[in-house]
């Protein structure tokens, strides 16, 4: 079960809505943060803290592809490979991430440090290539810059 701090956080979200189901999506994000991904345990915790049937929680979670449905690394890199990024070498960066950090496209590195998600346009075409690490945004990427950035994500 969640610890008291997390439960309080969820209570805070619940208090914003007349219907506790409305707190489901944000609570799933919290569970994902706490457990790293939406494991069965994570969803059960959400169900219990919101007093919702597990089937509702899993049903909702499984509808949204942007939740983590598989265990992910400690840090999730989301790299764009759409046209602008592709032209400016995003493909090479994908290879770089694999050779340098051992993280395959849409996979997780052996040491559990990184997961790499190849994602669609993140609206940074003017400063491509671009990526998100967890919720932080980075653009004008090169191999060297990636190395510098990822130093901050152990």
């Amino acid at each position: 079960m969640f610890n008291d701090t997390v439960l309080k956080e969820i209570e805070g979200i619940k208090a914003k809505y007349p219907d506790r189901r409305s707190a489901l999506l944000p609570s799933l994000y919290i569970a994902q943060r706490e457990f790293g991904w939406l494991s069965r345990e994570a969803m059960t915790c959400v169900a219990r803290s919101l007093n919702l049937p597990e089937a509702v929680v899993r049903g909702t979670a499984s509808f949204y592809s942007m939740y983590k449905h598989k265990p992910a690394g400690r840090h999730v890199i989301q790299l764009c490979t759409n046209i602008s990024c592709m032209i400016l070498g995003a493909g090479k960066l994908v290879d770089f991430l694999e050779t340098r950090y051992g993280v395959p496209a849409n996979g997780t590195s052996g040491d559990g440090r990184f997961s790499l998600v190849i994602m669609e346009c993140i609206g940074a075409c003017g400063t491509a290539p671009a990526m998100l690490v967890n919720t932080d945004f980075y653009d004008n990427l090169s191999e060297k810059r990636i190395e510098e950035i990822l130093e901050n994500y152990k």
Binding site: P53, E54, A55, V56, G59, F63
Partner: peptide, 10 residues
């Protein structure tokens, strides 16, 4: 009021 079944997936 039971909620034993869900629509799982998309």
């Amino acid at each position: 009021g039971r909620g034993a079944l869900g629509l799982i997936g998309r």
